[in-house]
Structures are given as structure tokens and as C-alpha cells.
Write a protein that binds this DNA or RNA. Structure first.
Length: 306
DNA sequence: GAGCCGTGGTA
DNA sequence: TTACCAAGGCT
């Protein structure tokens, strides 16, 4: 059932997209190769891992400054592991999904305690770390260690759907067929495979974009199944829009912002100001405590976890 | 496996 | 302004 284009077409895609990437890749600091790594005190696999977690559902432009700050604060897993989890949550700032900061801290502790402080160059061991799923394990494997893993994020899924299967958008969730396709497209050569992963992701991010793809600038437009099919509009069900206003996520965000900005523990009365609905407010505060993002103290005071 | 989990930029 | 979108993971 898997689309598997002829080997000649695959090789032509490799040439086209790798050449384009070599000429057009953005200069992102976590992409600097080990031979040129300019920060000897910063552990490069750790730098890659942190970048990948920060980039989960968050745009590059917002990640880059926070990544630099994290590398200054915590250049190795051991540095972060020695900090309080609440420090990670505070320094996460407004990147969003703050549980990622908590899991990054937990991953640092696991790397220190279970891996001797060295990030494992093994996909299964990477994925066993908190906050590291299939995508991030493959990305760290490829970009930090050169492992020939298929890195399949939404950019890759969209680009490969258009290039190979001719669909305007991938399905809402990752399918086994997409994973198989990504693996089939992976160059055999290990370094080329790592570069290919980055190249397809980059193409999806800056050219083969979701809303308004820049097909006129696409190096592979002559090889694109979607264009050959006449660039048909998406026909399947559209992803349900996420609501925001009035949701628990909005309330949790407001509560956590107070605690991030406070130098010390705050009384419940300070948290009461951020949302009028007491029932929802208390439920959200309780869920933040349950998640480990907030630590309750005696006398109705709260802080980021120490 | 559907739903939940933040935040800000863009059209 | 509303809606979509952004290098997912977890339950």
C-alpha cells in the first residue's frame, strides 16, 4: 500500500533537494556541525536535544533566543539536572507547553543518573527519556549522532505527501505508511541520510508550507506528484480547530505566568486575580500541582517547584 | 486514539 | 477579528 517511487525518481529527488538545501539552509546554531562547533563548553548532543524539544510546536524565531540562554545557563545535562525543576519552568518563559521544560529537566536527571551524563546515541534509549517521543528521538539520533533514522515531523509528512502521493495535506495523525515512505526515501549513506532529513524538513518549513506553498520557488516542482495532479485542494476532513478563549489552557497559562514572574512564593489571593471563575481557577491550579508545575506550600502559598 | 496541553505571529 | 498554524508527547 505504501507509495514507493522508482529508484531513479528517488535518486533524482535526493539530488534536487540536497542541492537546494546546501544552497538555502538557514543558519541555525544547533545545526553547526561538530567539527565547527564554536562553544567547547556546550555539549553538542545536548544542544541538539534541547533545540528539538523547544521546537515541538513552537516556531524557530521564538526558540532561537531561548535556546541561546539555556545553553548559557545549562551547557550540559548535568548543569540542568543540578538546577531546580522550577528554574527550568521559569526560564522556559513564554515558549508554551511548559511541561516540556519539566520533562527536559527530568530527562537531564535521567541522563545524569542512568547514562553517566552522556546522551545515549541510541534511538530506543533516547525515546525512553521524558518528553522524547518518536520524532525527537529520531531527530536527535540523526542530527546529533548521524544515525540513519527517518525523522518524520509534520513538515516532512506534508512535503512527502505532496511530492510522492500527490495529496495536499497528510492525514491528521502519523500513519505506518508515512513512516514506511520516509524510510524508503532515506538515502542509504548515513551522512547523506542525516542531511536529507534536515533538507526535507527545511523544504516543508520554508517552501512547501501548509497554507500557501511557494511552488514557484520549489526546487522539486517538476518532480511533484501534487503539482502533476493539478494541485488539488484538500478533500479529507479538516483538523478540528483548537479553542483557546476560556479554556483551562488559557487559565493555566495565566496562573503560571504569575508564578514565573514572582521572585518568591505567592499567596492564593495573587492567583485569584487572574481569572474570575473560582471553580475553573481552582481546578486549573490543582491540575498544575498535579502536573508538578506548581508546588503548594503551607499557609495557602504557591511557587514553581523547588 | 481522541483530547488535552501554551503562546504568539500572520492573513 | 477569527482562524489557522508552528521541528509533538502523553494519557
Amino acid at each position: 500500500m505504501t507509495h514507493r517511487p522508482p529508484i531513479g525518481e528517488v535518486e533524482a529527488l535526493h539530488d534536487t533537494i540536497l542541492d537546494w538545501y546546501d544552497a538555502n539552509a538557514r543558519d541555525l546554531p544547533w545545526r553547526i556541525p561538530a567539527a565547527d562547533w564554536p562553544w567547547p563548553q556546550v555539549d553538542r548532543p545536548w544542544a541538539v536535544l534541547v533545540s528539538e524539544v523547544m521546537l515541538q510546536q513552537t516556531p524557530v524565531a521564538r526558540v532561537e533566543p531561548m535556546w541561546h540562554r539555556w545553553m548559557q545557563l545549562w551547557p550540559t545535562p548535568a548543569h540542568l539536572a543540578a538546577a531546580a525543576p522550577g528554574d527550568a519552568v521559569r526560564e522556559w518563559g513564554r515558549l508554551g507547553y511548559p511541561r516540556r521544560a519539566l520533562r527536559l529537566h527530568a530527562a537531564a536527571v535521567a541522563i545524569r543518573d542512568e547514562h553517566g551524563g552522556v546522551i545515549p546515541a541510541d534511538l530506543q534509549q533516547l525515546q525512553a527519556l521524558p518528553g522524547i517521543g518518536g520524532y525527537t528521538a529520531a531527530a536527535v539520533g540523526a542530527f546529533a549522532f548521524g544515525i540513519r533514522s527517518a525523522v518524520v515531523d509534520v513538515n516532512v509528512r506534508r512535503a512527502e505527501a505532496r511530492l510522492v502521493t500527490g495529496a495536499a495535506y497528510p492525514a491528521p495523525s502519523l500513519s505506518a505508511a508515512e513512516t514506511a515512505l520516509a524510510r524508503a526515501l532515506l538515502p542509504l549513506d548515513e551522512p547523506a541520510a542525516a542531511r536529507w532529513n534536515a533538507a526535507v524538513m527545511e523544504l516543508g518549513a520554508v517552501v512547501c508550507k501548509a497554507a500557501r506553498p511557494l511552488c514557484a520557488r520549489c526546487p522539486a516542482h517538476a518532480q511533484c506528484a501534487w503539482i502533476r495532479a493539478g494541485s488539488p485542494a484538500h478533500d479529507g476532513p479538516r483538523r478540528a480547530a483548537q479553542r483557546w478563549h476560556g479554556t483551562d489552557r488559557q487559565v493555566r497559562g495565566k496562573l503560571l505566568q504569575v508564578l514565573r514572574d514572582a521572585p518568591a512564593a505567592v499567596p492564593r489571593s495573587a492567583l485569584d486575580l487572574v481569572w474570575p471563575d473560582a471553580g475553573q481557577r481552582d481546578r486549573c491550579l490543582a491540575s498544575l500541582v498535579e502536573d508538578g508545575l506548581v508546588e503548594p506550600l503551607p499557609r495557602e502559598r504557591f511557587r514553581l517547584p523547588g
